[in-house]
Amino acid sequence: MKQFLKKFLYFLIPFPLYILLVIVADPYNYWDNNILIPLETKLEISRELNGRLWKVVQYSKNPKANVMLGDSRVDIINSDRIKELTGEDYFNFGYPSATLEEIIITFDKIKELANEKDVKLKNVIIGCNFNLYNKFNNKNLIEATFNSSSQVDYILNGANIKAMAFCFYDMLTSSGSSFNTPDMDTAAFWKQQIEGPASIFYRKYGYPETFREKLQEIANYCSKNEISLTFFIPPTHTDLQDQIAKYHLRDAESTFKNDLIKIGKVVDFDYPSPLTSEVKNFSDPFHLNIDLDTILINALIKDRYTYCRTSTGTQETHP
């Protein structure tokens, strides 16, 4: 037995070292340890590698009363710019490739986290485009991320190995992040971005009755607890919008927008407008350029509506 245990302990030696490395490197900033990897590198690398984990860790540490939920189209809105323009402190809980299922679960979890830390939710903005409003688009990775956000789970999370490897490589070579660089010319990238994802999102559509009910429950909860709730339909380029017609889903899209209007306040940017018809306004057909997020912030937080329609009777304006 002694021999066995001795051999086993020798074998285990690398593991405490690995745990120590994770704690010191802290790639997802669980303990705010920035000695080995600077925060900027983490923001650039870890956040890109696993946006869900990054957001869950940050919000769990410091829940805020104002929250934005959605996918990468919401994620482009810079919280610091919101603070600068409005003075309001928002947590952006948008993460790449989020589904509506995940957005709804995220809302439930932030309710719990805010409650635990005695934070009263004040403003909730939910970003949701038509492609998320599909009963078949129901992937759910966020629940597992929330459920494994204890310290032990964090240390053993495989995402740390990836993040540390990329962060150290970046620091050693000063190569910078290349996650968003397409490996093709712009026109080909644009075409591929439209045809590939559109096919995935629209080839199979089913009306999401459960999602509608859950969104209604969120609205009821917000109304009961005096939380301001806004639904936001982020802008996408008209080339992508045209795909909806190509897949004969215009009626379904109208139903989606009408459903949201029946549930609560809606700010809609996703229709043909001078903003959405210009290629230069977008980094790809799905995402508005980051430096144009001021337009979104003004509409969502300061009630200054440009390039958008609202459900509260405000006319669309196109300066």
């Binding site: 990775l141 597992a144 494994s148 053993l156 999370n157 495989g158 190995i161 990836k162």
Partner: peptide, 11 residues
């Protein structure tokens, strides 16, 4: 063990 950590999917 490295592969187990690295490729851990959703449990």
């Amino acid at each position: 063990i490295f592969l187990i950590f690295y490729f851990t999917g959703t449990q």
